[in-house]
Write a protein that binds this DNA or RNA. Structure first.
Lengths: 261, 261
DNA sequence: GCACTTTGTTCCGCATTGCGGAATGTAGTT
DNA sequence: AACTACATTCCGCAATGCGGAACAAAGTGC
């Protein structure tokens, strides 16, 4: 192209492009996908073939990718998993919350998750299901949108004014012209949380899934905002049950997890 | 402490150093550690301050690190967790094994784990505990040595001759002058597996922990070698019980998980 | 208060390092 | 064999990342 002027990002002398590209390759793997060819990786990342080849070579040497013997395709390596477990290990709240969540799930025959906000998403830190059979694979590390889920709405509603504005900016970019509608809905949810202490999402994120959410008061400020949800199939839980039985119990659970509140 | 001699490979034209360094920063975080300063990262990775500064800057921008507001320290970001969950999602065997493992753990009041070999380590892909209370934090993503654990010995014993030789080389480097002893012990364990079908580690990896292990026949060859263990506290399980009750049941579990064997 | 330490960020010239188009290698298909 | 599709390797170019040193900021001690 033409000579490159100092664009928004390209002037950034501190940004290490090669690292970013390598991570772009790793994040090209979507959950549930077994192995990807170099070609596919090039397409997804938008990087030239030879560059991808070098990056996969490097990542493989480091154990972050492993190459299937016969197909030659790459899969995520176990070194990546070690990183992920290090993340989880750094959140002590899981150790406190997990047993309580498990009791809750068994008692109410419902699934319960602990999440943390990351931008305009909630990332699941822990999930307890009522039954052993895993139906939907929404487990630790999954991301769900702040706007359309009960857990997201609970989290959003607990943000300080300044944090909320930042989140709004994030979502405005994310939703484009739909943002006004989304924002209206969010504001409505926030009012409900202020009044009743919990949020709802009845079939809005996933069809036939009823969910309520509550926020946890952050134990150490700046640590990120934590939140809980309880969710079950619509055939087993109607709106009344969710509001009158599950939601109060979930609020109780939140108080158990963070006693100082 | 340990200087990393990377001069051997420095000729490699395909190896992307900047990427490797960035990942070195990420992997400097050990499980259970909350936040690290730039200084500590520089020490651990052996990289110059300014380089670490650039890398942390880049990683933070990408969401793989997040910076604590007041202390300025870095912690692993939630983007890392997404990668980890993608790894887990790519192993379908977990979906098959998890419910069976859970039943097993409940029935025998013992912990059971599914692992996969990575070099001279076993990485846990799934863990089911008998009780809700989590004592030792050996969960998904943890690494345990091939040589001194029941699960590792089971895995080692199931390797083909060529694979075993490679693993031996790995461990020879790892254990240095202790390797002959370790190898003798491993060979002994292998003989036991060949005879009885399972391996033992009674208090050898962790004091007061009794464990037996079995290998899973790899469903697709080259996919890596999978293995199971069952482990419990020594006060509740003696060697006889482990050998006569737990081990046969674990072999049975393995057959359930991989029916075609 | 001021030196002093400790840690993090920014600068900037240098050359190393990574870049990517093109060429080459390797299967798999018709 | 000719052809397609994909991955790897080559290689000259220069952009990119490097790291020492200077700078900034935030604690300590006396």
């Amino acid at each position: 192209m033409s000579f490159t002027p100092q664009e928004d990002e390209s002037k950034d002398r501190l940004f290490v492009e090669a690292l970013a590209r390598g991570l772009r390759v790793l994040s090209a793997f979507r959950p549930g996908e077994s192995a990807l060819s170099n070609q596919v990786l090039a397409q997804r990342t938008g990087l030239p073939k030879s560059t991808v080849s070098r990056l996969t070579y490097t990542l493989t040497k480091l154990g972050y990718l492993s190459q299937d013997a016969d197909s030659g395709y790459y899969r995520l390596g176990l070194a990546v998993l070690a990183l992920g477990s290090a993340v989880l290990g750094s959140y002590d709240i899981r150790r406190v919350a997990a047993p309580l969540m498990r009791d809750f799930a068994l008692k109410h025959t419902i699934s319960v998750s602990l999440g943390m906000r990351d931008g305009s998403d909630i990332v699941y830190l822990e999930t307890c299901r009522s039954q052993a059979r895993v139906s939907v694979q929404l487990s630790v590390g999954s991301r769900v949108p702040l706007a359309s889920t009960a857990i997201g709405r609970a989290c959003y509603s607990s943000l300080s004014a300044t944090e909320r504005e930042l989140a709004d900016i994030d979502m405005a970019a994310r939703y484009g012209k739909d943002w006004p509608l989304v924002q209206a809905k969010l504001e409505q949810a926030r009012q409900q949380v202020l009044q009743r202490g919990y949020s709802e999402s009845f079939g809005e994120f996933e069809r036939d899934v009823m969910a309520v959410g509550v926020a946890l008061p952050s134990p150490a400020p700046g640590q990120g905002s934590l939140c809980l949800n309880a969710s079950g199939p619509a055939f087993a839980f109607d709106a009344d049950t969710m509001r009158n039985q599950v939601a109060p119990a979930l609020l109780q659970l939140a108080r158990q997890i963070v006693p100082g509140a």
